[in-house]
């Protein structure tokens, strides 16, 4: 079961990343050219997913939109991992010390702020746009990774192989890098996939309220916002971008769950 999920998830993820990469070199139609004559056409031979209210090809826009979504979410995960994991490792290496206290209190503080609202504030105050969206989403990834890394690292620190490394004269930072981090890799991959999918959802939400990537860069969220007033006349305009988000997020989640089962030897043994 989990194997099928993993494969399905990987296929969906590849499909959308593939589309995003392909859009760099080729799209069926130019997405900046407006053809009012062809506006709001339902799916058909010329436009497989129909056209929008400016006559732009929805398939092409979804392909380019995938690029925006994936780029924003990926960089946001990068920020979260890049800052959160070292902080978490540091906190665990100095468990109970003042550094640990500060890092964890800081985390709790960020968690106490309503994430979506702060993302809205950041983008609204510093200007709407992809970069600010990345920062807004990325900030809330930091405590997620810090907490995860700290928790897992703490349990690794109690293991005898860490003690053996200390008997071999190694310091805390070296042990963190050589022994703790490699054993966190699986966990981080899995959480990374999940945060990636949450990032896609968050980016869609922000651009839906007009705070994500700005025109003319297409984004799935704004395509949905544009379609809202025309939903009864041209439901396909709302359907396909939404499906794109749904399938991408679903793919990433399935892949994350599948990876977890596949990478975790404990679960693998149970499944047998």
């Amino acid at each position: 079961m989990s194997r099928t999920g993993l494969i399905l998830g990987a296929v969906l993820t590849l499909l959308f990343t593939g589309a995003a990469i392909l859009s760099l070199v080729w799209v069926p139609y130019d997405i900046e050219a407006m053809r009012i004559a062809e506006r709001m056409q339902p799916p058909g031979a010329a436009h497989p997913l129909g056209t929008d209210h400016f006559g732009r090809d929805i398939l092409s826009m979804i392909m380019v939109g995938a690029r925006t979504s994936i780029a924003v979410a990926l960089v946001a995960v990068g920020i979260g991992m890049g800052l959160g994991v070292p902080l978490g490792l540091l906190a665990a290496a100095r468990r109970g010390g003042w550094l640990d206290e500060i890092i964890m209190r800081g985390n709790d503080l960020i968690f106490a702020f309503p994430s979506l609202l702060i993302a809205v504030m950041i983008t609204a105050v510093f200007g709407a746009g992809a970069v600010n969206a990345i920062i807004a989403i990325g900030i809330f990834n930091i405590p997620v990774f810090a907490r995860l890394a700290r928790g897992a690292a703490l349990s690794l620190w109690t293991r005898d192989f860490v003690l053996a490394a200390r008997v071999a004269g190694k310091g805390r930072l070296r042990i963190s890098a050589e022994h703790i981090l490699p054993n966190l890799a699986n966990l981080l991959i899995v959480q990374g996939t999940i945060q990636f999918s949450l990032g896609i959802l968050a980016e869609a939400g922000l651009s839906y309220v007009g705070l994500g990537a700005q025109p003319p860069i297409p984004s799935w969220g704004r395509m949905l916002a544009d379609s809202q007033t025309m939903i009864s006349m041209a439901p396909h305009m709302a359907l396909f971008p939404g499906l794109a988000i749904l399938l991408t997020v679903l793919g990433l989640n399935l892949m994350g769950d599948g990876l977890r089962d596949w990478l975790d030897p404990r679960l693998r043994r149970d499944a047998r």
């Binding site: 293991r159 008997v167 050589e178 022994h179 490699p182 054993n183």
Partner: peptide
Amino acid sequence: RRRMQVVFQDPYGSFNPR
């Protein structure tokens, strides 16, 4: 320290699996 070493109890936890 280089003149002292140790063997722990748990044959499963004493080694970095990676």
